[in-house]
Structures are given as structure tokens and as C-alpha cells.
Design a protein around this nucleic acid. Structure first.
Lengths: 95, 95
DNA sequence: GCGTCATTTAGATATTTGTCTAAATATCTA
DNA sequence: TAGATATTTAGACAAATATCTAAATGACGC
């Protein structure tokens, strides 16, 4: 588990916005990029960082490349963050 | 709430290690630094970043400056992270 | 196959960041 | 008050990062 890759990926505001944008469901690179004032090349760079952290998954769908959140990593991310603080998770907090 | 400051602060491995080190309780700058192969000046820089994110609190105790985790921010941090993912917190998960 | 659209890769550049050394500030003790 | 210890500040520098333009790759429809 690349803890460093995850934290680094989350450090950039554009990347966090991308993640939020994907909450509604999978989107093509272009659809995601439409919301940002940034070139496709820069976007692609951010995608690469998110992918390296395994936060998103990709799938080519014809001409498009579709991004989606890697939900299976969420618990791990949550745990990593929690782990930085001296909280004991309450017994009822499984999800 | 300086979301950007928090995520940026967490992005560095040394700073995350500092937070972990503080889980056991408050420590002076020197005591924290003993675990790292880094100059006091660099340490101080990291403290500044953590303080700016409001993740740690300081208190001068005589000659020393004592750092401690800002526990009241923890929930907020957790929420910020959770907020990036489409999870609904389960009802039992208050802490 | 060609032109077009969507995305990535390569290479350049400016900014940010982590680190250092040296100097400044603050506090203690003799 | 002088010297020692703890920490921060200032300034410099190298490495990492975010961005851009231009070119490459892949897939579609004619």
C-alpha cells in the first residue's frame, strides 16, 4: 500500500476536486476536465498521480477513457488518516 | 478551516511521523527531533507547517517548547477525507 | 486509408518545497 | 550578567511539482 502516493495525491486541490467530481459516477477524462481551467495535458498528469495512488481506475470505452473512483481503497485511506491520530474507533463504526 | 493547509501538511512523511510520535503525548521540539536525521532548523520548518494547518499546538515550558496534537481538529480532518469519497457514515459511527 | 476527436507522452519552464548553514531570540543557571 | 542550551528565522540551493506547448497514440466514421 503506497501510503506516500495516496497522501501526495490528496495534497493537490485540483486532484481533490477531480475525486469529488467522480463521486457522481464514472466520467471520461474530457468530462472531468470540462470543469477545470487547465489543459488536457495537465489533467492527464493529475490522472496519472491519482492512478499511481490507486485512487481511481480507468477503462477505455471506445474513443474515451473513463475514470472512476476505486471505492475498495476508501477504507484503507480512512484508516491511514485515522492512524495519525490517537482515536480508538468505536465498536459500532464498521461500514 | 484551511483544508489545503491540512492536506499539504499530511503530504510529507516526516510530518506524518511527527504526528505519530505525538500520539503518546506532548513532547518538546528536541525530543521529537531526536528520532529524525534532520537539523533542528528543518524540524522547525515542519512544525511551522503543522501549526499552520492547526494540527499541533505549542506551549513554551521554560527553555523548551512543547508540541501536542490538536485533538479537536481530528474529527474535522476525518470528515475532510471521508468527504472525498462517496461513503455514507453508518449510524453507529460517531466517536 | 484519412481526417478528426480524445487522451497521453515528451520536453521545457516557473513555482513550491525540503533541506542546509549561519545568525537571531528566548530561557535557564552559575 | 555571561555562557550554555533550545528553538526559530533568514537566506541559499537542489529536487520535486504543476503547468504549458507540441507531438504521439488510439479509435472512430467516412
Amino acid at each position: 500500500m503506497k501510503q506516500q502516493a495516496v497522501f501526495r495525491a490528496l495534497a493537490d486541490p485540483t486532484r481533490r476536486a477531480i475525486l469529488k467530481r467522480l463521486q457522481g459516477g464514472a466520467l471520461s477524462a474530457g468530462d472531468i476536465g470540462a470543469a477545470f481551467d487547465i489543459t488536457p495535458a495537465s489533467l492527464s498528469h493529475h490522472f496519472a498521480v491519482l492512478k499511481q495512488a490507486d485512487l481511481v481506475r480507468t477503462e477505455r470505452r471506445g474513443q474515451y477513457i473513463v475514470y472512476s473512483l476505486n471505492s475498495t481503497l476508501m477504507e484503507d485511506v480512512a484508516r491511514m488518516v485515522m492512524d495519525l491520530f490517537p482515536i480508538q474507533p468505536s465498536k459500532g463504526s464498521k461500514r
